[in-house]
């Protein structure tokens, strides 16, 4: 029995995991720069902008990502707009938007801590040496900021690996969805739960790989304090 099921399940899980990885990658690519922009907004000396940004960050961080996924995916339909269509492409697009916005807000707070954590004296030292604002950012503060944000960022990135499973709620065909399909019945197999358990190994392997890579990055920045 198992010998016949395994190749089918394995293939389905691989296809699902590819979707998981795609969502993970798109979220990082979108949220890393967007988070920086949001952090600049929340640090702005223009009060209305910083108040607006901080309120937005509060709403996104104060509500479940699962709820945000539901609102973004089903919301337009309620207003009579069939933005997403019925297919997997639409579900992925909606998931990606929800994840990018959500993670950008978390990242923005990490960036803010990193930027504000660089002592003011570093900027002043650059200023008295006649450096321009851009030179001070790129040559003086940026690397110190990166060093500060790598550990909390690593945490968020590992969390993101597992959070991608939340997209299951709008039926994105990621790995949890793929594992669950054999419970309900798919490709002539039904009522088996081990594929769902088996998905855990994928998450473990991937987060293990990321842990090693991120630790390496942290070590690379160890040459200064």
């Amino acid at each position: 029995m198992f010998e016949q099921q395994f190749p089918i399940v394995f293939h389905s899980l691989n296809v699902g995991f590819l979707q998981t990885l795609k969502l993970f990658a798109v979220t990082l690519i979108g949220a890393l720069p967007l988070g920086l922009i949001i952090s600049f907004g929340s640090m702005s000396r223009f009060k209305p902008l910083s108040a607006l940004t901080r309120t937005f960050v509060w709403i996104i961080r104060g509500t479940p990502l699962m709820l945000q996924l539901i609102i973004i995916y089903y919301g337009p339909g309620l207003l009579g707009n069939n933005w997403w269509g019925g297919g997997e492409t639409g579900r992925f697009l909606a998931s990606a938007i929800a994840f990018v916005i959500n993670y950008a807000c978390y990242f923005s707070e990490i960036y803010r801590g990193g930027i504000q954590g660089v002592p003011q004296g570093q900027r002043e030292a650059g200023e008295v040496l006649g450096l321009t604002k851009a030179q001070i950012f790129f040559r003086v503060t940026l690397l110190q900021m990166i060093k500060r944000i790598v550990p909390p960022m690593s945490n968020e990135i590992i969390t993101l690996v597992k959070d991608t499973s939340l997209a299951r709620i709008i039926s994105l065909q990621e790995i949890i969805w793929a594992g669950q399909s054999f419970l309900k019945g798919s490709q002539g197999i039904s009522g088996i739960i081990w594929p769902l358990f088996f998905t855990g190994l994928y998450y473990l392997a991937f987060s293990g790989l990321l842990t090693i890579l991120l630790a390496r990055l942290e070590k690379k920045l160890d040459y200064f304090h």
Partner: peptide, 16 residues
């Protein structure tokens, strides 16, 4: 600023 140099109490060397 280039007319002046400034040495700070807390050094403020660039650590990297």
């Amino acid at each position: 600023r280039l007319h002046f140099g400034l040495v700070f109490q807390s050094f403020n060397l660039f650590p990297q």
